[in-house]
């Protein structure tokens, strides 16, 4: 019986899980590459200063890294770790999003109250858009028509028309908005507010607020529950929300906005990324310097992986 169990567990743990999770280490100026199958760090590459946002090109032949204190976006060859070139990014790039055209990067310039649009092919700045103080969260709608910047001190989501690269709406959210995501159908926009402790849901069409997600963990002081990064589940029925110094990831029902479960992870959880087959979720835990692996089906944490100091962003390569 024990043998059989062991055999079952082994087979369960060994689906063909190729792929890598790339994690930026803000205080080490490196990126750690985690093998999704072995759950080990297999490579560590040096980057510019204070790497935060990270994303791959559509064909995964390039990885873009916000090197905030180097005031640049670096373009790395993920096969070699070699920095191919830098992109003009404006000052202090923190987060960015790659448009569906696989060509334009929308970059939040945290110290400058500006969103910079960069053409990754011509390596030029296409536009700079004045937004609120301390822009951070970046999102782009699935059809590519709308980009979002959230500003931490102005407490707004700024709606950018990508055809004119200008603002067409500014909507207030709760204090210190950190992250924004459109739903897969583009009909709704979710914005997390770190100090406000909420997620505000907007209808994309009229930019009207349609809901609020709130959190409460027994035994954790309310003002330590600080939603930051989040991702929707592949089927769209759930959102996984990193709660910062509350050291938990909330599982939110996207139909009711109710929290179904809180999953214990490492300290000060920031952002997260799925494995290529979406069965596992990898969270970056800034203070504990590790990555928690969550099994998406059982909603249980299965492993912690030590990475560099202050892991921040995460991106997947199959």
């Amino acid at each position: 019986m024990r043998l059989l169990l062991a055999a079952l567990m082994t087979s369960a743990a060994l689906p063909a899980m190729a792929g890598e999770i790339w994690v930026t280490n803000e205080k080490d100026d490196t990126v750690s590459v985690i093998d999704v199958e072995t759950l080990e760090v297999v490579k560590t590459y040096p980057t510019g200063e204070r790497p935060r946002g990270i994303t791959f090109s559509k064909d995964f032949s390039r990885v873009y890294i916000c090197a905030s204190d180097s005031n640049t976006v670096q373009v790395m060859d993920p096969n070699t770790g070699e920095i191919l070139h830098d992109l003009p990014s404006g000052e202090d790039p923190e987060q960015f999003v790659l448009a569906p055209d696989d060509r334009h990067l929308y970059i939040a310039n945290e110290d400058d109250a500006v969103t910079t649009v960069v053409d990754t092919q011509s390596r030029t700045v296409v536009a700079q858009i004045n937004v609120g103080i301390e822009p951070e969260g970046m999102a782009v709608s699935p059809d590519g028509k709308v980009a979002i910047t959230t500003s931490e001190t102005t407490n707004m989501a700024h709606w950018i028309d990508t055809s004119t690269q200008s603002l067409f709406a500014n909507t207030l959210v709760d204090a210190r908005p950190r992250h924004a995501e459109f739903t897969a159908d583009g009909a709704a926009l979710w914005v997390s507010s770190e100090i406000g402790g909420t997620i505000t849901v907007f209808e994309t069409k009229g930019q009207t607020e349609t809901g609020k997600v709130r959190f409460a963990i027994p035994g954790v002081n309310q003002d330590l529950i600080q939603p930051v990064g989040f991702r929707f589940s592949p089927d769209g029925t759930r959102a996984f929300v990193a709660l910062g110094p509350a050291n938990h990831v909330a599982v939110v029902n996207t139909a009711t906005y109710e929290v179904e479960k809180y999953i214990l992870v490492g300290r000060r959880v920031w952002h997260m990324e799925y494995s290529p087959d979406k069965t596992r979720l990898f969270t970056t835990n800034g203070v504990s310097g590790d990555v928690t692996v969550i099994d998406v089906a059982s909603l249980e944490p299965v492993k912690s992986i030590k990475v560099g100091r202050f892991p921040w962003g995460a991106a997947m390569r199959p």
């Binding site: 109250a113 609120g132 103080i133 001190t153 102005t154 407490n155 707004m156 700024h158 500014n170």
Partner: peptide
């Protein structure tokens, strides 16, 4: 300055 930036939008 922080207030003025927000105020410009509001």
């Amino acid at each position: 300055k922080d207030n003025q930036t927000t105020g410009a939008f509001m």
